[in-house]
Amino acid sequence: MRKLFRYPFLCFMALTIVAVMPSAWRQLGLLPPRQPRRAILAEIPEIRFPAAPEPLPEPPPMEEEPSLEELPPEDSLPPQPPEDPFTGALFIGDSRTEGIRLYSGITEADFFSSTGMSVYTVFEERLDAGGLKKCTLNELLTEKQYQRIFLMLGINELGYKIEETVQTYSETVATLQELQPEAYIIIQANLHLAKKRSDSDKTFNNNNLNQLNQAISQLADGKTIFFIDVNPIFDDENGYLTEAYTWDSVHILGKYYSQWADWLRENTPV
């Protein structure tokens, strides 16, 4: 044993491994976690958690999504589709919104987006947006007024329990309305995954995405909050993202973002 001390590297490595092992085992689920999941999340937002062991609950009973044409006009003036939806607009989202920012050709709107963004981190991140440097979303929405806010989040939250995500989503939308009472909130459905990824991943797949999309579409009230779904233009006949449009099964290729922008020009409801 005394000989071991002649090899300080070995000593240090043994100590390090023993010291780190409990955390590693906790991370792998071999030891129970020390704190509830949300608390850990607050410290290190990007660690992936294993999918919830309980089965996901039944989705809420499918109501007919009120299509915009069927809505009885409550006010005298029903909301009109805009000529130019992007001036005075803000996009909030994750890496797919980053794709829109970089490749769609939309220059009139502001973007508050980053890879990995989720409803759990959207108010904590500091980004360069709307001419401000390293601002939080709160600061941005206090400084500038927008006519419409496009919101697309959800895929980074698939590892968490769906009820928590929907609850946080709804709180997020409520906060946005508080900060920007004049703005319309337009929730976009999360983009589907291609078959290769969706069929092989227990967490990140279209079933979970569709469940989440369904749940957040319930937040739309047709007056100030709307829900739109771009998936039909990129999906194949089975509801997967068409293979030809993507390389990594998650993001569409750069050249297709302009189609997304065109679709938004036609289909932004208000």
């Binding site: 490595m13 390090t16 780190v20 955390s23 590693a24 991370q27 290190i44 990007e46 660690i47 992936r48 994750d94 890496s95 797919r96 890879t115 990995g116 895929i155 980074n156 990140f204 990594d248 998650v250 993001h251």
Partner: peptide, 21 residues
């Protein structure tokens, strides 16, 4: 070693596994 282990914890282990979208 510690740097690598940290990266593994952060899930930046393999860029082909998208932990962050």
């Amino acid at each position: 070693f510690l740097g690598s282990v940290y990266c593994l914890f952060r899930g930046m282990n393999d860029p082909f596994l998208y932990f962050r979208f």
